[in-house]
Computed example of a mutant assay.
Amino acid sequence: MIRFTALALAFVSALGLALVPTASASAADDFAATSSIAEYFEGSTADIYLVNAPADVVSYSWEWRPEGESAWYPVSGFADWIMFPVYAGSGGDYRAAVTDAGGVTSYSAPYTLVVKRLEWSPSPMYLPEG
């Protein structure tokens, strides 16, 4: 079997064909910002990170928009993840802008941060005696 594999590789290289490993996912299609938690509560800490980022990234920056099709605004972040405290106005979309060695900037698919408030019962709840 090893001898057959060596012969096959020699044949392919003799034809001038390159062996290229197949990727499990296309970075252009799956490059996205994501999080390990679906919903955040006010007062918690959000962590948003990138998946399937291009391999030759030389710089990262992060952007945020409050809703829908509004403009993107820069936010603090310099790596392939960001962490920040969640407050009432933290919701919206977050995306990364990455620049490769050739100076080309690509944007990740955005992650929508859902912020929930902790709700308390308006009246105290008591356990029945007995």
Rank of each mutant, 00 (worst) to 15 (best):
R117V: 10
A97R: 03
S36R: 15
G16M: 05
G68Q: 14
P85E: 08
F78W: 12
P21G: 04
T105F: 02
V86P: 01
V57I: 11
A55D: 15
L17Y: 09
S36T: 13
V104S: 12
I48D: 01
D29G: 11
M1P: 06
I82G: 00
N52G: 09
L9M: 10
V104P: 10
P122H: 04
Y126T: 13
V114F: 06
S26I: 03
F78Y: 08
I37V: 14
P85V: 07
D100M: 00
G91H: 05
S70W: 04
Y60N: 00
F41S: 14
Y60R: 00
N52K: 12
A32H: 06
P128G: 05
L15E: 09
S90N: 04
L17T: 10
Y87Q: 07
S70L: 10
Y87M: 11
E42Y: 06
A79C: 06
A27I: 09
T99F: 00
A33E: 14
D47I: 11
A28N: 15
S26P: 15
S123M: 12
I48Q: 01
S13R: 14
V12E: 02
Y60A: 00
F11W: 12
E42N: 09
L17W: 08
S76G: 06
W64V: 03
T22P: 04
W64S: 03
F4S: 13
T22A: 15
Y107K: 03
S13C: 09
E119K: 05
A97G: 05
A32S: 10
S70Y: 10
V114L: 07
Y49M: 06
P128N: 08
S106Y: 09
A6S: 11
Y107C: 11
T99E: 00
L17G: 11
T45G: 14
L15K: 15
A28V: 06
Y40F: 05
A46E: 07
V86K: 01
F84H: 02
D93Y: 11
P85F: 05
G43F: 04
T22S: 13
R65D: 04
K116Y: 09
Y94E: 02
L50D: 00
Y94L: 05
A23L: 08
S76L: 09
W81A: 14
L15G: 12
Y87H: 14
P21V: 13
T34W: 04
A38S: 15
A14R: 10
D93F: 06
S121A: 07
D80P: 03
A71Q: 06
G16Y: 04
A25T: 15
V58H: 00
Y87R: 11
A25K: 09
Y126M: 07
S44A: 09
L113F: 02
T34H: 03
T45P: 10
W62D: 03
T34D: 02
Y87S: 11
A10F: 07
A97W: 02
W64K: 03
A18T: 15
A53R: 01
A18G: 06
V86W: 01
A28G: 13
A38N: 10
L50S: 02
F84T: 03
G89Q: 14
P74I: 01
I2Q: 12
L19G: 12
A27Q: 08
A18L: 07
A109G: 12
P122S: 03
E69Y: 13
T112A: 10
F41P: 14
V51K: 12
